[in-house]
Amino acid sequence: MITLQGLKKHYGKTAALSQVDLTIQEGEFLAILGPSGCGKTTLLRLMAGFMKPTAGTIRFGDTEVANSKHSNKPENRNIGMVFQSFALWPHMTVEEHIRFALKNHRFSQKRTAEEQAARVTEVLQLVGMEPFRKRYPAALSGGQQQRVALARAIAPEPDILLMDEPLSALDAELRISMRKEIKQIHKKLGATIIYVTHDQGEALAMADRVLVMQHGQIEQVDTPETIYQSPETPFVATFVGKANLVEGTWNGSHFTPAGTQLSWLDNGVSEQLKQKQLFPVRPEEWQLLPAEADGLKGEVIISQFQGTERHYVIRTDGQDYQVSLPIADPAWHEGELVRLQVRRRKTQYATEEVLLELR
């Protein structure tokens, strides 16, 4: 178990991290998600031991590995690290990278030459690189190089695997493929994985829990489903799922969009969003109806065909809303007048589904 308590990191007068308190369970896959400059890489580097916190403590199990006065070096922590840049040595073959990790990782168990050879083969088979064991990095694709970097990190069987945006240098198709690989490896190894990314798709697809950060602070930490379906803050709502924040007024369990007589039933909106008089609606939760129907008046500003769905921008009284509809729904064209309604969705607050209705 990893415990972060009162963790802060300042660079001069700039606060990169402010009061981070977090417990990560043994064997958990935690994704740290946020935009550039939010402090996620700083948090990872503190856990790795590359820097010392300004305040607070880091504990691995019962051992305090860092505080404001002392920080154990990376080699004195039982961790593996996978970087964005792969960081492979050009003069070593694939199998030599794995053998180097087995020989030099301080916490790697002592093995005979035969046991080392068996472990190299086992790890290369796990990441699908056994046929390429004699190749040098220059003869490998980007995806293959990342598999080697991953194999090198897991070979010594570390307790904690730290991954800093490891897929960002790969193309879209390879990233999706590697997500599956990493998730399968996590299931087989059972190690704790801390995975830093700015890609919400990666975080939601792989992690047991997602930690969303902004301005060096934790905005929300929960399961992917809860983060997506029940965002607690405006930032989480817009950063994860790209929710539209509709302004209006809350009255008990009903919300009235500004400038209308409409009433929307509470579908699980957080107290913080209610206090700010906001109602989050994800792009796929909208319905587009003819102009004579009930709903928010709008005009189709942008219509984009995206294969399995169509993306729209609907402008209502100067406010633009993002809408994503299945390709099976009727197509709307730029310049058409429409009405926006919230799609019906079952919630814990009502046995019926969410309805957009006139008072």
Rank of each mutant, 00 (worst) to 15 (best):
L4S: 03
G6H: 14
G6P: 07
G6Y: 12
K9N: 13
K13M: 03
K13F: 00
A16C: 06
E28I: 05
F29Y: 15
P35H: 10
T42R: 00
M51E: 15
T54V: 03
T57H: 07
T63F: 03
E64P: 04
V65P: 04
A66M: 05
S68M: 02
N72V: 03
K73A: 01
P74H: 05
P74E: 02
E75R: 04
N78H: 10
G80H: 08
M81E: 13
L88F: 08
M92C: 01
T93I: 06
E96N: 09
F100Q: 01
A101Q: 05
L102R: 04
L102K: 04
Q109F: 02
G128W: 05
F132R: 14
R133E: 01
Y136Q: 09
A139H: 15
L140K: 14
G143D: 06
Q145H: 11
Q145R: 15
Q146W: 05
R147T: 03
E157N: 13
E165W: 01
E165R: 07
P166A: 14
A169E: 10
L170S: 10
L174D: 06
L174C: 07
S177N: 15
S177Q: 15
Q184G: 00
I185C: 08
A191E: 10
T192Y: 00
V196S: 13
H198A: 07
D199I: 02
R209K: 05
V212M: 05
V221C: 15
V221D: 03
T223F: 15
T226L: 06
S230I: 01
T233N: 08
P234S: 09
G241P: 01
L245C: 11
V246Q: 02
E247R: 03
N251F: 06
S253G: 10
H254Q: 06
F255M: 11
P257F: 10
P257Y: 11
A258Y: 00
T260G: 09
N267D: 15
V269R: 14
V269I: 08
Q272E: 15
K274M: 12
E284A: 12
W286K: 06
P290S: 13
D294F: 04
G298A: 09
I301P: 00
I301Q: 14
I301R: 14
Q306E: 11
G307F: 06
E309P: 00
T316V: 06
T316M: 06
G318L: 04
G318K: 04
Q319S: 07
Q319L: 07
P326M: 07
W332S: 07
W332L: 09
G335K: 08
V338S: 10
R339T: 05
V342Q: 13
R343K: 11
R345F: 03
T347M: 08
Q348H: 03
V354N: 06
L356V: 06
E357N: 02
